[in-house]
Amino acid sequence: MPTEKTEPPVTAFMLVKTTPEWLALSVQERVDAFTTRVLPAIEAKTTGVRSRFYDTEFYSARVTDVWVWEAEDHHAYQLLIDALRETPFWDRYFEVVDLLVGTENGYARTYGLEPVATITT
């Protein structure tokens, strides 16, 4: 039985820098802003998206946070970016410094190879 070929998930590393407007908010105001203004916009516009957040301000002056977005396909990723651009997240609370978008082990799929990865225990 043939298997349906599916598009690999899209991973975006969004490098951002906090703005003075974001830093002027209290911690609770930041949580409220994210949960009432950003998350609802994402949930209304797309599905199949997951996020993780990393603080980098301890090590970088140019990038304060890295947000990792995983989308089930390119369309879900595009909808995510469209949704974020319609919120104060984009250019009010954070400056988007760079977007690094890729698919995990793309080389392996291209050349029909097993992915090379490390696992330590």
Rank of each mutant, 00 (worst) to 15 (best):
P2G: 06
F58N: 02
V38E: 05
A24V: 10
K5P: 03
R30T: 04
E86M: 03
E114Y: 06
L15Y: 09
T64G: 13
H74E: 15
T110G: 11
P8R: 06
E43L: 13
E21N: 01
V27P: 06
T47G: 04
K17C: 04
W22Q: 09
T36D: 09
K5D: 06
A83R: 06
K17E: 07
F13I: 00
T6K: 15
I119A: 15
E70F: 00
P40F: 13
A108P: 02
R92L: 08
D65P: 03
P2Y: 04
S26G: 12
T120R: 13
W69K: 00
H75L: 13
A83H: 08
P20R: 08
E43T: 12
Y107P: 05
T11E: 02
G48V: 09
Y107M: 14
D98H: 12
T46C: 10
R50S: 12
L39S: 09
G102K: 05
T118I: 14
R62T: 13
G48H: 06
L79T: 03
L39W: 09
T35V: 10
E70Y: 00
F58T: 00
D65S: 12
G106N: 07
E70M: 07
R37S: 07
A61K: 15
T19R: 04
P115E: 09
A44S: 13
T6A: 11
D73N: 15
